[in-house]
Design a protein around this nucleic acid. Sequence first.
RNA 1: GGAGAGAUGGCCGAGUGGUCGAAGGCGCUCCCCUGCUAAGGGAGUAUAGGCUCAAAAAGCCUAUCGAGGGUUCGAAUCCCUCUCUCUCCGCCA
Length: 424
Amino acid sequence: MLDLQTLRADVQAVALRLAERGFQFDTAQFAALEGERKTMQTETQELQAKRNALSKQIGQLKAKKEDASALMAEVNAQADQLKTLESKLDDVQRRLNDFLMVIPNLPHASVPAGKSADDNVEVRRVGEPRKFDFAVKDHVDVGAGLGLDFDTAGKISGARFMVLKSGVARLHRAIAQFMLDVHTQEHGYTEVYAPYMVTGECANGVSSLAKFKDDLFKIEGRDLYLIPTAEYPVTNFVRDQILALNELPLKFVCHTPCFRSEAGSYGKDTRGMIRQHQFDKVELVQIIHPDQSQAGHEELTAHAETILKKLGLPYRTVTLCTGDMGFSSAKTYDIEVWLPGQNAYREISSCSNFEGFQARRMQARFRNDKNKTETVHTLNGSGLAVGRTLVAILENYQRADGGVDIPEALQPYMGGLKTLAPVR
RNA sequence: GGAGAGAUGGCCGAGUGGUCGAAGGCGCUCCCCUGCUAAGGGAGUAUAGGCUCAAAAAGCCUAUCGAGGGUUCGAAUCCCUCUCUCUCCGCCA
């Protein structure tokens, strides 16, 4: 949610910045709602104050065993009016809130303007794509011989699911373990385990349920959603909290499966495990002081990149342009790994600074050095998507004989195994 | 699944219809006293929002005692629904 003070101070400026990301902010409607809210609230509170004062007097009279019927009549006379005002105020506040809750975040000043992914700006490219002296296969073909099984998955769950067996199953597990160890031991994150389902309220804390509920799997008959990323439960750890200054920053790393309905992505990435209804991800989350969120964002992105470096996977990092950013983000770096099978860089991590946007929705604050409550900033990023890392390893480390070399960093997690041999 | 108990401020804990945003204690902040330390005395110490104001400061007001609804002139207190926690029994990875 945008900061109401900022919004009131200069609606036009806000509208302009939102336009950059392709969002039409209805300034007239905002002015109307705000105006209505203001009148309703003032009137309602005046009446409430009057009622409270009279009630107090009634109490005093009754304590002295005196007659209070005149005052009671006076309160009763305005009771209907008060009730009407209260419900009108309630209504306008809800409408104002609904209006505000679907407005995306303001892009940070450093975000390049643009309409689509084509306008994203590459900030760095690391590693050289390998030259193959044999016909390169994509991960589906490489994996087929190693235990990657879409047929069985299709039978039991349908499209966009996978079954892993034997070597690839173990490799999949090794990747997640490796990432968790690097982030906890080298980057100072606290490992957390969190629920795979969250309430609608929590979903609204990090994103907009009204806007994106179709992307989520909902538990029938309950106010629970399967998480599309560990960001959902973990960021909400600090919901409704006032943290002490010295508690910041909080740094969490969490490995979970992620569930996405992928509504609206029909026909996109239908082959292979690039886009699945269920995939594992190791997520980095930081709750941070506003003054440090920019630096923290750079740092978190570097933490994610470290994994790719250690795995020897070529990648590039891009800054998403205003038109390609997610709803809640003020600034996002996507890290894209090189996939020989697609002859392209594909997203493997998305690292965002949400500034106070999520924190205001969650009411996550801290006590600043002036002892005042202030909104925290939140950051998160994939560190990394486990399934896509598996894809990248299968494709980048494939051998002419159909096997796959195991990156050195992962060998300790594979019992010292150096190569996955085809199982036939 | 069955039976019972409970949810109050940073923490503990009182409060079962009236001046209660809430006693008391602990903690914390500031001040005083005490040649250090210990002890003692005083004051302050929730959050969100609104109004006044150019703004700040300040003041006033509203809401909030797990959440939502209801009764009432008035609700932490009474009623209903829900959520969560604890205890016992049963079941169980």
